[in-house]
Design a protein around this nucleic acid. Sequence first.
DNA 1: AGCATATGATTGACGCGTCAATCAAATTTG
DNA 2: CAAATTTGATTGACGCGTCAATCATATGCT
Lengths: 172, 172
Amino acid sequence: MSDGDHVTRAAARRRMSVGELAIWRSLVDTTAELRRILGAQLLRDSGLSPADYAVLLALSEARGRRLRSSELAAAVDWERSRLSHHLGRMEKRGLIRRDDCPTDSRGAEVSLTEDGARMFRGATAPHALAIKKNFADALTPEEFEALAGILRTLQNHLHPEQTSTSREDLHV
Amino acid sequence: MSDGDHVTRAAARRRMSVGELAIWRSLVDTTAELRRILGAQLLRDSGLSPADYAVLLALSEARGRRLRSSELAAAVDWERSRLSHHLGRMEKRGLIRRDDCPTDSRGAEVSLTEDGARMFRGATAPHALAIKKNFADALTPEEFEALAGILRTLQNHLHPEQTSTSREDLHV
DNA sequence: AGCATATGATTGACGCGTCAATCAAATTTG
DNA sequence: CAAATTTGATTGACGCGTCAATCATATGCT
């Protein structure tokens, strides 16, 4: 049951069918559309981009509501350069702050400002509602089960070593 | 069987569960990772971005290998502004050409250059192989069936009126 | 100690995507 | 027909994301 790649080997020689390709395209198109809709909605409702939201979420969940830059990058699974750029923009808007790290003079500690925390709180409920309306309400419990399984399969395929479940579980 | 929204109404009052939210996040994360991997691979293999590829694909499939700007925008499902910007960059690289439209002096006709056609041909096989390796090889036929059904469900939810299947079918 | 290398983080350049504004040609309408 | 509106398409500004380069501090090695 946990033998992750016998499928890979079994299919290794076959060519991809046009049906499989169509499903791939449909997956890309549909998720892109959902992200577009939900991202635009989030921005209208709260003035936050999805990226802003991800950063504020990670900081909100962090002990002491503060993280080292590198921890934050790991939490949101971004390249550090991307994070630096984005933190610069968020700092300019007053959503977060960067202070020198006491234990490592190279490091930065990122924390929520009062404004950032407030905006995040205000964004949460409408955003969850939008996800529910546009995504969750469409699927039956069986479909959720099936989708969760497929995503686990895909993750196992992309990261064969780790024992699956969510990325958060192994945020070393 | 084709009653598209009884699910919507049935679930309308419930709150979204944390499990459903986790599946949504997993969907976003996993598809983002796949796009990132395949996009980077495509670029390395062929010098084309996914956006370039989409444009060249649409033009390759078009009658006479040329399309009006607006038709092209519809074919790739982009905003016209995005297309304009992207065509500008592609034109500068010599991948496509824009000529005045004979029947409507406002319009532009976009066509493949020889270079563009050649690069597209060279990109096709490795790109399909990468999709196969990273995505298609992971899933069983049953999982493909299930995923296709879920995507149909989601599309029906987003566009209730149309009779589903793929977007291409009704590219009026 | 002194030098090499690792690491934490930022920067600049550049392609990308969205929004609002613009422009010109076509169509509608009084 | 002339003014108003609609349509096809482009532009500019700005935020975003990636890559390669950079910088400063910390760590490892001899």
